[in-house]
């Protein structure tokens, strides 16, 4: 229970991730000015020009009494929240699949964020430069954008574990990339191994 879990929780996870070594360049970006329009990420993503970006967040959680099931963006305790689509971004399907497979393999619960409102810096990063494959992983936080956000410790540790697992297998995924079914059309795609680990916060949430 704290203020500013959006998105200091992402900052903590990223700090932890930076303690390990990876077979690719990992850029840990602690971005600025997300809450007023996803600004820092835009500049950072041009500077880094990553192949892949994973966005670590605290996201809206609206599992309260009186809310219909389909309006609950995420549920506390149900695991890390993954975004298929919000107002700012449609995540890279293959990257999302890699993350959910990793979660299943590690026995980590996960949920897809149900509402499509709100935005994250994933939207800015994805369309920067020649394009970036993006997907947000987030810790559900109740009462986001208020003086008291509430998160579930289990969700926090699951998110950390999932982010670690995703990175651990990312090199294989990037070189293997068996998900591209467009006939030969991926042959020009640059799959040089490298990663930008960005961390951002939720912008205009639906809270």
């Amino acid at each position: 229970m704290a203020k500013a879990l959006d998105d200091r929780v992402g900052c903590v996870i990223l700090t932890e991730l930076l303690k390990s070594r990876y077979p690719f360049d990992l850029y840990g970006c602690f971005t600025v000015q997300e809450e007023i329009g996803l600004k820092g990420a835009k500049a950072a993503s041009y500077a880094v020009a990553p192949d892949v970006a994973i966005i670590l967040e605290g996201t809206t959680c609206y599992d309260l009494t009186g809310t219909s099931e389909h309006m609950m963006s995420t549920r506390l305790g149900d695991g890390p929240s993954l975004t298929v689509m919000d107002r700012s971004v449609i995540s890279d399907r293959d990257l999302l699949k890699h993350i959910t497979r990793t979660a299943d393999k590690l026995g980590i619960p996960w949920q897809i964020k149900r509402t499509i409102s709100g935005g994250t810096d994933a939207g800015r990063i994805q369309v920067s430069g020649k394009g970036v494959r993006v997907c947000p992983i987030a810790v559900p936080c109740r009462y986001i954008h208020t003086p008291v956000s509430v998160m579930d410790k289990r969700d926090f540790f699951h998110t950390l574990k999932l982010a670690e697992g995703t990175l651990a297998e990312l090199a294989d995924w990037l070189t293997g990339d068996g998900d591209t079914d467009v006939k030969d059309s991926a042959k020009g795609t640059a799959h040089t191994v490298g990663l930008d680990q960005n961390q951002f916060r939720e912008g205009k949430s639906n809270v």
């Binding site: 369309v127 394009g131 494959r133 991926a186």
Partner: peptide, 8 residues
């Protein structure tokens, strides 16, 4: 002469 796809 060439056909490719990108990250998007």
């Amino acid at each position: 002469d060439e056909i490719r796809s990108d990250a998007m």
